[in-house]
Amino acid sequence: MIEFRSVTKTYPDGTDAVADFSLVVPAHTTTVLVGSSGSGKTTLLRMINRMVEPTSGSIEIDGEPIAQRDPVRLRRSIGYVLQNGGLLPHHRVIDNVATVLRLEGTPKQEAREKAAEVLDVVGLDRSLAQRYPSQLSGGQQQRVGVARALAADPNILLMDEPFGAVDPIVRAELQAETLRLQQELHKTVVFVTHDIDEAFLLGDQVVILSTGAQVAQVGSPSEIIENPADDFVASFIGTERGARALRTKHTDHGTVLVDGAGRTQGRLVESSS
């Protein structure tokens, strides 16, 4: 469990990136922080592994304040997937994945064997192990990023807009892969995105942020869609118009659901329960 307690962040130039943020991130579930740019979502994420230090307030992992932990050791115990991979361009895929293990002193051969297993886990062919990141596609690089984060088997996985830079088809693939992985691994995942659809797809708990990391609403995707807290949330998740503003239309073959643009999106079926 990760807990934010009244966390604030003011940058030296006076901008308030985070103004009084509190949140409980339950263990073994996926919490998605979603908001537009300037909502401070990445800042919050980076506080968890002390890449950013809060100005005030505290963050605890399993009841222990992280401020007391050595930042480097803390980071090695937490998986972090960056947008664009953030891989080391001069290291081969296998060594990129083995980075944390090597930093922790695992012998090279053992680290590489472990890394090769993790490549299997994230669905990367072992034949790619000897390549350099620049020789991979964007989607493959992202998988290597995930593999690197998982290699040391951390309890917590931080994902910073990991699929922001890949094309929609690959993104959908990676999202499906993330869901599959989470079903197997049950990590405590904190995921940052500006894409509300991605948030609803991946999140057990979704946190909608407005400027300065103010929490507009926290809840499961269903709770948020069924009962948006205010106009901001309603407009942000798009229940007023577009793909999520559905109305029913009766046809000769039953009832269908139609979106704001008049396009039929699906059929209304009786629930089985």
Partner: peptide
Amino acid sequence: RRIVDGARAVGMTSSQVLGKVEIPL
């Protein structure tokens, strides 16, 4: 910057970032 950021994020110390990433590149 994102490469250096990635190196810090996986838990390299400041001198490891310099020695393993910044100097070779």
